[in-house]
Nucleic acid binder design. Sequence first.
DNA 1: CCCTGATTCGC
DNA 2: GCGAATCAGG
Length: 174
Amino acid sequence: MAWTDERVEELKKLWSEGLSASQIAKQLGGVTRNAVIGKVHRLGLSGRATPSRPARRPAKPSRPRTTTASIEPVRAARPAPSVPAAPLTAPMEPAVLPSGEFATVLTLKDSMCKWPIGDPSQSSFRFCGRKADPSAAYCDAHANMAYQPSQKRRRTGEAAAALNSITATRRYNF
DNA sequence: CCCTGATTCGC
DNA sequence: GCGAATCAGG
């Protein structure tokens, strides 16, 4: 489709009325919004109530044209971080301490499981408090939940138990 | 992701 | 001159 005098006139009209390039292109038909914009610039009637043009762009270096179509080296795939989500709820009940109380921020010891239970903003907030390796954050059961959140189905057998134990004992630095 | 105009440059 | 590709924003 060529830019006949009529089409150019229509373009000027619509452009002056504030229609967007894509809208003008759609109305004229047979042209894309890029064609409209290009024509607008060539006609020298750019500017207007330009919604988006805060600052002057320095200009682009150079752009490889599609004709040459040299295949650029593919960017390396981004490895997924896959950080285990921090547990917000705990299915297990907090352990009762020898003192008869639950583990709170004040009574929690290094050797106790630090799995949060309840709403931290509430006074009823406790920790699991079960026996845990001093270097580990959680007891074995909660370590499994924390470090294997998407475990579909618990495997059975000594081999699986050994694997779970190993995983639960692993150290994590944050 | 949708949209906007702006710019470059092979054709 | 044309406009696709691309850019820089909203």
